[in-house]
């Protein structure tokens, strides 16, 4: 039996290897650490306010203890529903158009506009919707806030839909066409179902992204001490409540701001975990 000769890589390569591993490990720790620190910090500072009442009551007047942010939670949910209703259909259809139908010129135009739209500062978006919706209607409203957030959702919904559709292999499209399906039948019965988990994930992450936007809401949904009936009244929302409480001079409001921040961030984390689960499930389904 001959002795096995194990050839170690040269020293330099081993050193570089260890160094890089350590570096990337440290970076990972840093990212995870920052997130954990924020969460714990929010919890630490807001824990005192995080009672059941915090979720079920309206804000208490200054000086009175207790009170909650029920109106802001409901307001944020309403704003996000409206934004989804506006942003997702446009983003979906635009993404389908870009990936399946757009020619060189129109594709370039749509893609370029979308990228520009994505780059518009959120405060500018707020002012834009303020002039377009709030001024003519003479008051702030859930509707205006939803429109602002909805417009902000379009670019990402559109580009992520486009990306996931493009990732569907050409062989699947050809398989459909070769069976006598028309182009649109192929798109709607094969391509979109094959990409649906990815598309859903993209939309959820998009919702999570605009959920924390504050600036556009300041000019559109404004704020409200009470529940906001219907869609045409000003409404409270978590980000704006956090902002207002945080800049106030009162300690009890500061605490509430921390707590509201914790609620918002936990909600976003939950949404992105769900999004990951959906994507993983889609992968599992399509790879057997």
């Amino acid at each position: 039996m001959s002795a096995a000769v194990v050839a170690y890589p040269p020293l330099r390569r081993r050193v570089v290897n260890v160094a890089m591993l350590t570096l990337s490990g440290l970076c990972t720790l840093l990212v995870v650490g920052v997130l954990l620190t924020i969460l714990l910090y929010l919890l630490w500072n807001g824990a005192h306010s995080l009672t059941l009442h915090f979720f079920t009551q309206l804000p208490a007047p200054v000086g009175e203890p207790g009170g909650g942010v029920r109106n802001a939670i409901i307001g944020t949910l309403k704003l996000l529903s409206l934004a989804t209703l506006i942003g997702v259909p446009i983003g979906l259809l635009g993404g389908i158009y870009l990936s399946e139908f757009a020619g060189g010129w129109s594709g370039f135009a749509v893609r370029y506009t979308t990228d520009l739209l994505n780059g518009v500062p959120s405060v500018v978006m707020g002012i834009f919707v303020y002039t377009l919706v709030v001024l003519p209607m003479h008051h702030f409203s859930t509707l205006a806030g939803g429109i602002a957030l909805g417009i902000m959702m379009i670019p990402i919904a559109l580009r992520s839909t486009e990306d996931f559709l493009r990732a569907v292999p050409r062989s699947l499209r050809e398989g459909g066409l070769a069976l006598g399906a028309s182009k649109s039948e192929t798109i709607f019965t094969i391509v979109i179902p094959a990409a649906i988990y990815g598309i859903l994930t993209g939309i959820l992450l998009d919702i999570a992204r605009v959920a924390g936007e504050t600036a556009p809401l300041l000019f559109t949904a404004f704020g409200n001490q009470y529940d906001s009936p219907g869609w045409l009244q000003p409404t409270a929302s978590l980000p704006v409540v956090i902002y207002n409480y945080a800049i106030s001079p009162y300690d009890s409001w500061h605490q509430q701001a921390w707590a509201a921040g914790f609620v918002l961030l936990s909600g976003l984390l939950a949404v992105s975990v769900v999004a990951r689960l959906i994507l993983a499930r889609g992968k599992k389904l399509s790879h057997g």
Binding site: S171, L172, E174, G176, P193, A194
Partner: peptide
Amino acid sequence: GMVFQKPAPFPK
């Protein structure tokens, strides 16, 4: 009808 070189069943 056509069958391609690489089998590409629909993800169904």
